[in-house]
Simulated assay, not measured.
Amino acid sequence: MKRFLTTEQALAQLFEEEPIEERDMVIIPPNPSAVSDEKDFDENDLTNVGVLPSDTAGELEIHNSQFGIFKHHLSIDEQMIPYRGRHSCKMFIKGKPIRFGYKSWILASSDGYVFSFDIYQGKSENKYEYGLGGKVIIKLLKALQKPNYHKIYFDNFFTSFKLLSYLKQMGYFATGTVRDNRIEHCPVESIKVVAKKERGYYDYRFEKLNEIFVVRWNDNSVVTVASTCHTISLLSNVSRYSKKISSKIKIPQPNMVTAYNKHMGGVDLCDNLISTYRIKIRGKKWWWPIFTNFIDVALVNSWKIWKFVNRDDKKSLLAFRREVTNYLLRTPVKIEKNSSTGHASQFALQCENPIDSSGHYLSKIIDGKRRRWILPYALKIYVPNMSNRTPY
């Protein structure tokens, strides 16, 4: 028997012993007018450069969070939208799977559900107290209604001691890898000293005033992690390959590093799902790749909700996309005449009372011209036999 809970009731159970992912429940969406603090949302400043028409980005952001932020562990990372045309916002990042395109900052859950995003629009003349990474973090976290219900993870591009101190004061729990020049003279052992130690060695320090824990761990390379909610205990053992004995060995790993590795890959998981079945329709407008990427994000989010509610249904993302496509093709579309779109083609034939677009065929007639038909039985045309066609 399923338990029907509101978003707040479901979030209140995140800190119980039994994880929310294992409960058999359905979250009832709240009133869309009270989803979050959208009134303070500045529409990503997209209207200043005209990234998308009709505020598409702002509308998608509202729909992404219409069920509230119903995940406990969230991650923030960058996403590349492929584009090889000419535009001032297009970027080149060496070593990335998508080297040319638009950059977008994403707030997603650990399983790949996108809650919020911000498209990077180039360097700003304003100087930010916490740097560009801190500005992005603070802007994306505005979507959270209750900061103490979530734990945030991000990489060393964003993390700094000042940012962690600010997030701690605002009530956010944050964890991230940090660069050596951003730990504010923390007396932890240097990278050169830790690199000479055995594999699995770690050193840590705790800053009492802001309650920030810093650990430096020696793995394949030296990793530094800072957190306001995790510590080094409990230690876990991870498997690594040793060249000396030509076999795998067990080495200790601090809890901070374990939690970071477990919950940080949400944006990468979403990118992987999008790239598998990315929309390939090409357009001549520079904003078209951003628009199609938003459609892919919406489909992935819908599939995630479907899996969350229908636990027993093992429907794949491809099958889900096909089902959505078939539904849209069967949905009647009312076309209104618009003088701005020009006149109809002289070869277009209209039929009274069309049923829907599922009977839309393009066929040759006697005079050799191609005409668009609303119904297959409007005139004598060839209709292929679909009964013997193999289903998906």
Rank of each mutant, 00 (worst) to 15 (best):
L5W: 10
E22N: 15
E38W: 10
D45G: 13
D45K: 14
V49A: 08
G50H: 02
T56N: 02
I62T: 11
I62F: 12
I62L: 14
S65H: 01
Q66Y: 02
H72C: 12
I76P: 03
E78T: 08
P82S: 00
Y83S: 06
K96Y: 03
G101K: 01
L107D: 07
S109V: 10
S110W: 09
G112F: 01
D118C: 05
G122C: 11
E125R: 12
N126K: 13
K127P: 00
G131E: 08
V136I: 15
I137D: 03
L140D: 10
K146C: 05
N156D: 09
F157G: 08
F158D: 02
F161E: 04
L163Y: 10
S165V: 05
L167K: 00
G171T: 03
G176Q: 11
P187Q: 11
S190W: 04
S190E: 04
K192C: 07
Y204L: 12
R205H: 09
F206Y: 14
W217G: 02
V225N: 05
H230E: 15
T231D: 07
K243G: 03
K244G: 00
K248I: 08
Y260L: 05
K262Y: 00
K262C: 00
M264A: 07
L273D: 06
I281P: 00
G283K: 01
K285R: 14
F291I: 10
F294V: 02
D296S: 06
V297K: 08
A298T: 12
V300G: 01
K307Q: 15
D312P: 04
D313S: 11
S316N: 08
A319R: 06
R321I: 04
Y327C: 12
E336Q: 12
S339F: 13
T341V: 03
G342E: 09
Q346C: 05
L349D: 07
P354S: 13
I355H: 09
I355E: 12
S357G: 08
S363I: 14
K364T: 15
I366V: 15
W373M: 10
L379Q: 04
Y382H: 11
Y382F: 12
